[in-house]
Amino acid sequence: MLPRQTLWPAATVVLCLSALLSGCGNLPANTPQPVTLTNADIQGNDVVVFALGLVETDYRFGGKNPAAGLDCSGMVSYVFDKAVGLKLTGSAADIARKGHVVGVSALRPGDLVFFNTANRPYSHVGIYIGDQRFVHAPSKNGKVRIDTLKTGWFAARFEEARTYFN
Protein backbone atom coordinates (compact mmCIF):
# COMPACT_ATOMS: atom_id res chain seq x y z
CA MET A 1 0.00 0.00 0.00
CA LEU A 2 1.15 3.51 -0.92
CA PRO A 3 1.56 6.19 1.73
CA ARG A 4 -1.13 8.86 1.93
CA GLN A 5 1.29 11.56 0.80
CA THR A 6 1.71 9.72 -2.57
CA LEU A 7 -2.04 9.19 -3.16
CA TRP A 8 -3.11 12.75 -2.43
CA PRO A 9 -1.46 14.45 -5.49
CA ALA A 10 -2.63 11.66 -7.84
CA ALA A 11 -6.22 11.86 -6.53
CA THR A 12 -6.21 15.64 -6.88
CA VAL A 13 -5.09 15.39 -10.52
CA VAL A 14 -7.77 12.79 -11.30
CA LEU A 15 -10.50 14.89 -9.65
CA CYS A 16 -9.42 18.06 -11.46
CA LEU A 17 -9.31 16.28 -14.83
CA SER A 18 -12.74 14.74 -14.19
CA ALA A 19 -14.21 18.14 -13.38
CA LEU A 20 -12.71 19.71 -16.48
CA LEU A 21 -13.78 16.91 -18.79
CA SER A 22 -17.31 16.72 -17.43
CA GLY A 23 -17.89 20.26 -18.69
CA CYS A 24 -17.03 19.17 -22.24
CA GLY A 25 -20.12 17.00 -22.51
CA ASN A 26 -22.61 19.83 -22.15
CA LEU A 27 -23.30 22.12 -25.11
CA PRO A 28 -24.60 25.61 -24.50
CA ALA A 29 -28.33 25.95 -25.19
CA ASN A 30 -27.80 28.14 -28.29
CA THR A 31 -25.33 25.80 -30.02
CA PRO A 32 -26.66 24.85 -33.48
CA GLN A 33 -27.46 21.19 -33.87
CA PRO A 34 -26.02 19.24 -36.81
CA VAL A 35 -28.18 19.26 -39.93
CA THR A 36 -29.04 15.96 -41.53
CA LEU A 37 -29.14 16.27 -45.31
CA THR A 38 -31.36 14.01 -47.36
CA ASN A 39 -30.30 12.60 -50.70
CA ALA A 40 -32.65 15.14 -52.34
CA ASP A 41 -30.87 17.98 -50.51
CA ILE A 42 -27.46 16.72 -51.62
CA GLN A 43 -28.57 16.33 -55.24
CA GLY A 44 -30.22 19.76 -55.20
CA ASN A 45 -27.05 21.34 -53.85
CA ASP A 46 -24.98 19.57 -56.51
CA VAL A 47 -27.30 20.98 -59.20
CA VAL A 48 -26.99 24.50 -57.76
CA VAL A 49 -23.20 24.40 -57.54
CA PHE A 50 -22.93 23.15 -61.12
CA ALA A 51 -25.42 25.77 -62.38
CA LEU A 52 -23.60 28.60 -60.62
CA GLY A 53 -20.46 27.57 -62.48
CA LEU A 54 -22.25 28.44 -65.73
CA VAL A 55 -23.02 32.06 -64.82
CA GLU A 56 -21.80 34.35 -67.63
CA THR A 57 -21.95 31.54 -70.20
CA ASP A 58 -23.22 32.83 -73.55
CA TYR A 59 -26.85 32.38 -74.54
CA ARG A 60 -27.71 30.61 -77.77
CA PHE A 61 -31.21 29.59 -78.88
CA GLY A 62 -31.31 25.79 -78.92
CA GLY A 63 -27.91 25.64 -77.18
CA LYS A 64 -27.24 22.51 -75.19
CA ASN A 65 -23.64 22.87 -74.03
CA PRO A 66 -21.56 25.70 -72.56
CA ALA A 67 -18.97 25.71 -75.36
CA ALA A 68 -21.59 26.55 -77.99
CA GLY A 69 -23.93 28.51 -75.70
CA LEU A 70 -27.03 27.57 -73.75
CA ASP A 71 -30.70 28.38 -73.82
CA CYS A 72 -32.86 27.90 -70.71
CA SER A 73 -33.91 24.29 -71.29
CA GLY A 74 -30.48 23.38 -72.64
CA MET A 75 -28.89 24.73 -69.47
CA VAL A 76 -31.28 22.77 -67.24
CA SER A 77 -30.75 19.57 -69.25
CA TYR A 78 -26.98 19.98 -69.22
CA VAL A 79 -26.79 20.76 -65.48
CA PHE A 80 -29.06 17.92 -64.35
CA ASP A 81 -27.23 15.42 -66.55
CA LYS A 82 -23.72 16.44 -65.48
CA ALA A 83 -24.45 17.17 -61.81
CA VAL A 84 -26.71 14.24 -60.88
CA GLY A 85 -27.08 12.05 -63.97
CA LEU A 86 -30.76 12.88 -64.43
CA LYS A 87 -31.97 13.20 -68.04
CA LEU A 88 -34.37 16.13 -68.44
CA THR A 89 -34.73 16.81 -72.14
CA GLY A 90 -36.85 18.87 -74.47
CA SER A 91 -38.25 22.36 -74.15
CA ALA A 92 -39.11 24.11 -70.89
CA ALA A 93 -42.72 22.93 -71.39
CA ASP A 94 -41.53 19.34 -71.90
CA ILE A 95 -39.44 19.49 -68.72
CA ALA A 96 -42.40 21.00 -66.82
CA ARG A 97 -44.46 17.88 -67.54
CA LYS A 98 -42.06 15.89 -65.36
CA GLY A 99 -41.44 16.23 -61.66
CA HIS A 100 -43.82 17.18 -58.86
CA VAL A 101 -45.42 20.57 -58.24
CA VAL A 102 -43.94 22.46 -55.29
CA GLY A 103 -45.34 25.53 -53.57
CA VAL A 104 -43.13 28.61 -53.44
CA SER A 105 -42.81 28.30 -49.67
CA ALA A 106 -41.49 24.73 -50.07
CA LEU A 107 -38.87 25.50 -52.75
CA ARG A 108 -35.48 23.89 -52.17
CA PRO A 109 -32.21 24.48 -54.01
CA GLY A 110 -32.19 22.47 -57.23
CA ASP A 111 -35.94 22.73 -57.86
CA LEU A 112 -37.00 24.21 -61.18
CA VAL A 113 -38.98 27.42 -61.58
CA PHE A 114 -41.12 28.01 -64.67
CA PHE A 115 -42.29 31.23 -66.28
CA ASN A 116 -44.66 32.45 -68.97
CA THR A 117 -42.34 34.77 -70.89
CA ALA A 118 -43.70 34.43 -74.44
CA ASN A 119 -47.46 34.34 -73.86
CA ARG A 120 -47.07 30.56 -73.64
CA PRO A 121 -47.23 28.51 -70.45
CA TYR A 122 -43.88 27.14 -69.36
CA SER A 123 -41.92 29.05 -71.97
CA HIS A 124 -38.91 29.64 -69.69
CA VAL A 125 -37.20 27.64 -66.93
CA GLY A 126 -34.56 28.32 -64.29
CA ILE A 127 -32.91 26.52 -61.37
CA TYR A 128 -33.83 27.69 -57.88
CA ILE A 129 -30.70 28.41 -55.81
CA GLY A 130 -32.25 29.62 -52.54
CA ASP A 131 -33.19 32.95 -50.96
CA GLN A 132 -35.84 33.56 -53.68
CA ARG A 133 -33.16 33.55 -56.41
CA PHE A 134 -32.71 31.40 -59.51
CA VAL A 135 -30.09 30.90 -62.21
CA HIS A 136 -31.21 30.78 -65.83
CA ALA A 137 -30.25 31.45 -69.44
CA PRO A 138 -32.40 34.35 -70.66
CA SER A 139 -32.14 35.53 -74.24
CA LYS A 140 -32.09 39.17 -73.12
CA ASN A 141 -28.52 40.30 -72.29
CA GLY A 142 -27.26 37.01 -73.73
CA LYS A 143 -25.67 35.41 -70.64
CA VAL A 144 -26.55 32.87 -67.95
CA ARG A 145 -27.31 34.93 -64.84
CA ILE A 146 -29.03 35.05 -61.46
CA ASP A 147 -32.38 36.79 -60.96
CA THR A 148 -34.97 37.01 -58.18
CA LEU A 149 -38.48 35.69 -57.77
CA LYS A 150 -39.33 38.62 -55.47
CA THR A 151 -39.48 41.51 -57.90
CA GLY A 152 -38.91 42.42 -61.52
CA TRP A 153 -39.82 41.11 -64.93
CA PHE A 154 -39.44 37.40 -64.16
CA ALA A 155 -41.23 37.66 -60.80
CA ALA A 156 -44.32 38.97 -62.61
CA ARG A 157 -44.22 36.01 -65.01
CA PHE A 158 -43.62 33.20 -62.51
CA GLU A 159 -45.95 30.23 -63.10
CA GLU A 160 -44.96 27.23 -61.07
CA ALA A 161 -42.14 25.31 -59.40
CA ARG A 162 -41.40 21.62 -59.67
CA THR A 163 -39.05 19.25 -57.90
CA TYR A 164 -37.26 16.34 -59.53
CA PHE A 165 -35.88 14.78 -56.37
CA ASN A 166 -37.79 12.50 -53.98
Rank of each mutant, 00 (worst) to 15 (best):
V13Q: 14
N26Y: 14
G103N: 14
G23W: 15
F80G: 07
V102C: 10
N26P: 10
F80P: 05
C72W: 03
H100P: 14
L70F: 03
E159Y: 04
T148H: 11
T12Y: 08
L52R: 01
V113F: 02
N166R: 12
D94C: 11
V13C: 13
L149F: 07
K87Y: 10
L2N: 15
V144R: 01
V47A: 00
M1H: 12
K140D: 10
V101K: 13
G142I: 01
G90D: 06
S123H: 04
G99Y: 02
V49A: 12
L21G: 15
R157E: 07
N116A: 11
L107S: 03
A10S: 06
K82P: 03
V79N: 00
N65P: 06
G74Y: 03
L52G: 01
L7S: 03
Q43I: 00
V102G: 10
N119T: 05
K98T: 11
G69A: 05
V113D: 04
F154T: 07
K150H: 14
A51N: 01
V13D: 13
A68W: 01
L54Y: 03
S22D: 09
T117D: 05
T89M: 12
D131F: 13
E56Y: 06
V14H: 02
L112H: 04
A29M: 12
I146Q: 11
S77G: 06
A118F: 13
Y164Q: 05
P34Q: 07
L54Q: 07
Y59E: 09
R145A: 05
W8L: 11
L88W: 09
H136D: 10
R97V: 08
N45G: 14
G103Q: 12
A29Y: 08
N116L: 11
A96I: 09
D58G: 07
P138D: 05
N39I: 12
T31L: 14
R60L: 06
D94S: 13
C24G: 13
F115L: 04
A93D: 02
G103P: 09
A96Q: 09
T6A: 15
A93W: 02
A67H: 13
R4I: 15
V49I: 15
